[in-house]
Amino acid sequence: MTQSLTMSRRASPSRISRTLRRRANLGMIYVCVTALVMVMLIPVGWMLSTSFKPLKDVFQIPPRWIPEVITFQNYAAQFNEVLGTLTLNSLIVAVCAAALSTFVGAMTAYGISRFRFRGGPVLMLFFMGSLAFPVPLIMISLYGLFVKLGLLNTYAALVLGHTAITIPVSIWLLKNFFDQLPREVEEAAYVDGATPLKVFVFIVLPMARPALAASAIFVFVVSWNELLFGLTFTSTTDMRPLPAGITLIFLQEFEGAWSEMMALAVIVSVPVLVLFFFFQKTFLRGVTAGAVKG
């Protein structure tokens, strides 16, 4: 917009030179941006490139970006029962944590947003602050708690743990969103005789879909990434999530088979990258709405 405006007002020579300069600058900016983006993506590109090379080409000097020989062997070697189990575990835990954290977060956020009470702002501050709670410190007591409840080495331990460390963000995201929702619809429904619960479930939640999605994606990504709970709260392969499983099982066995390691890394990244690729816009809308306002 601004560009076309400047272009149309070409009156004085100084304007013209400014426009020219501007175009040259714009060209520079394209170069800079492209270069920066490429630098950012080099590690990922190198990971992809290596993952398709046979092991002996991996150590080639000088290194080649486009593999001489393309092999899918590195990927094929990864598809075994263990990786399948780990992936399934991670999926189950991440989906449950995303659902739990988002749903409970939505209830709390709605309460803080719609009820006027003195504790509200304090609660929000507490949630923000709790992001800085040292996770290992939390884990010590959680460990004892889970032992007592018999939850060690269950999905529940991981889901609860991941919910605990993500629910503050869910609440923040959703509260900001609810604050921006017009209340007229809710009030009208309420006056028509719907119970507050019905208003929340059938009117508010559907309207909040973008924010719910943003929260769910955030929790999913955190859960997919989380290492410490997975290492400590599970003790057998059939319960372990991906990061812990990879650390414990795969990294020891590779013995320097870098191309296979890169293939594994790609496989682990794919689910979150795909999810994120499709929902990025929704996610950004949800996140930036809160961030820019707050």
């Binding site: 018999g150 060690l152 080495n153 290492l231 003790s235 057998t236 099982i249 020891q252």
Partner: peptide, 21 residues
């Protein structure tokens, strides 16, 4: 047979013992 990976199998045995399984 319960498969436990070699690395840190100690942690797992400890966790299992302390957790009562």
């Amino acid at each position: 047979r319960q498969d436990v990976p070699f690395e840190k199998a100690l942690d797992q045995a400890t966790v299992a013992h302390l957790g009562g399984n």
